[in-house]
Nucleic acid binder design. Structure first.
Lengths: 145, 145
DNA sequence: CCTTGAAAGTCAGAATCTCTGACTAATATG
DNA sequence: CATATTAGTCAGAGATTCTGACTTTCAAGG
């Protein structure tokens, strides 16, 4: 798949990486300079009530060992904590800790900023269509949603 | 940026990775089983007439050293070749070799298949809107296009 | 209640990928 | 010609990711 006539997948790669970079840069600039891209990819998928490691692994598209490795680092840096999962003694929930919440606030702001820029460039209508198409696409591309 | 209300960036990540996996699986299944994901990401950005290493690096979003490392492997495996760039003696063009062309054909087929599935799921209209929005977005997210 | 298979997580080890820094050769500028 | 920039490489280190094996717990069936 070499080429100039970029396919939809590559186009998404380009935009996705641009967003990712902007957000990470903002987080790092805000003083959370010990977080890495790989860690952020896992971190961003943690739900409000905490998320199991296996689930994080699936969503970040890495093995559970890799996810565990990254969560170890996030935990050591104080971004997340592991708590027992009530209802399943095998599992633990990875939850966002105080420092993680602070970083997440910065990240959310950066996301909003980038989305606003995109909306300004595309126009509200096309931006809405983009979001809708991607959300629908998730039904057949996201192994869990 | 933790959450459930996935932002547009994450939505693109999900779909992009789904496409990437499908394509790589197809290529590997076709017998090109020594190619890796990282190599494929560089390979797919090689243009018809060959592309400079620095350009490949920018487009794949890695450093030129990393791109060089990956091109080394692609070259050793016979997927690409390096030829002198006429017009700039410093530069070399990374070009797709015979084996690479065979792999690229398989990849292109897989891309077409996935795009067809997506179009079927979204409907032709929304699929077209998706492509258009992403292409426009590239104007502000792609450092070169 | 007990057995069996599956699931969640961890440990260990190796391979792969990626980066920073330093360097050479060639080009562009003035 | 002097200087700054660009293309690419070399060397070394760090980060990420994987496969395989293992423990504990859960789920289902008998």
């Amino acid at each position: 798949m070499p080429q100039d006539d970029l396919n939809v997948g590559v186009l998404m790669f380009v935009a996705y990486r641009a967003m990712e970079k902007r957000v990470l840069d903002a987080v790092v600039a805000a003083g959370f300079d010990d977080i890495t891209l790989a860690q952020a990819r896992v971190f961003q998928r943690i739900g409000p009530g905490g998320t199991r490691l296996v689930e994080l692994a699936e969503q970040a598209q890495v093995t559970k060992q890799t996810a565990g490795f990254l969560v170890d680092q996030l935990e050591r840096a104080g971004y997340v904590e592991r708590v027992a999962d009530p209802g399943d003694a095998r599992a633990k929930l990875v939850r966002i800790a105080a420092r993680g919440r602070a970083a997440a606030r910065i990240a959310a702001g950066a996301v909003a900023e980038v989305e606003a820029e995109w909306a300004a460039h595309l126009g509200a209508r096309r931006m809405a269509q983009l979001g809708e198409a991607l959300t629908r696409l998730r039904q057949i591309t996201d192994p869990f949603a």
